[in-house]
Design a binder for these strands. Structure first.
Lengths: 132, 132
DNA sequence: TCGCACACGTTATAGCATAACGCAATTGAT
DNA sequence: ATCAATTGCGTTATGCTATAACGTGTGCGA
């Protein structure tokens, strides 16, 4: 899937996420966009839904937050599974794609005749800098 | 870690989860326990916190729900990573432990000097029965 | 030009989780 | 024995996360 032209709201939300150094919650994004005319959560959630659909933003389920995809160019949907390491001190997120893990999980799902649609792999802990 | 004696509230919550055939949200558990005297969300959340700590219950981040561990006897904390396949039709959850995936992820984390503490691996889709 | 799809705005509400207070029972050290 | 620390419990209030339901405007193809 190729990413279509973003609308005004989608662009605003995407820019905020791109400039952020760590994941943001929908309400944090809302606050950052009040000056640009945002008033309600739905404006953020609707933009996020599309950005997630296009694969340019990821949702981190374990912290109810969102990050811009680490691969600005390519489309993330083509990478198979994505894993995230999330630092609980500084909030930084490392994105990771691994075919080995991918295949292993897919094989298991196949053996269970389970049709996978969405996946979440998130590791929380402390990054190199913060582990000290 | 060996699981200590459960308190009254912990036992009630654990029993509800054990009898359930699919994950339950904290508020659903609360509703099921009103007859037993539960009145407030905190009563449920406090019990859940302990049960999670003891490793006899898992939290499913992607659906804000909780399930009893599939391994009644052994302690789940000793299994390393746990993965879940969650059916979006019937709600059924399949629990899965795999050392291959485990090692692969751990190696990557090690290469990043990332200290892992908690992990979440959840696949949503449709189980064999519901995929039809 | 009619109908449809889509983005958008607004208000209200639903669903998930925790803060902060106080009380009672238990334990363990002095 | 007594005091302090810990733990579980109950209650009220509040905050955070997400969506329902309504209506508006715009663009575009049949």
């Amino acid at each position: 899937m190729t990413t279509p032209m973003l609308t005004k709201n989608q662009t605003l939300v995407f820019d905020v996420l791109t400039k952020a150094e760590s994941p943001l919650s929908a309400y944090t994004i809302l606050d950052k966009l009040r000056d640009q005319g945002f008033r309600a959560p739905l404006q953020v959630y609707r933009a996020l839904d599309k950005l997630l659909e296009y694969g340019v933003v990821h949702r981190l389920e374990s912290i109810n937050s969102f990050v811009a995809c680490a691969h600005p160019d390519e489309n993330c949907h083509s990478h198979g599974l994505v894993a995230f390491a999330i630092c609980e001190s500084c909030g930084q997120v490392i994105e990771f794609h691994d075919h080995e893990v991918d295949h292993r999980l897919m094989d298991w799902l196949k053996s269970q005749k389970f049709k996978a649609e969405k996946s979440t792999i998130e590791i929380r802990g402390h990054c190199a800098k913060c582990a000290a």
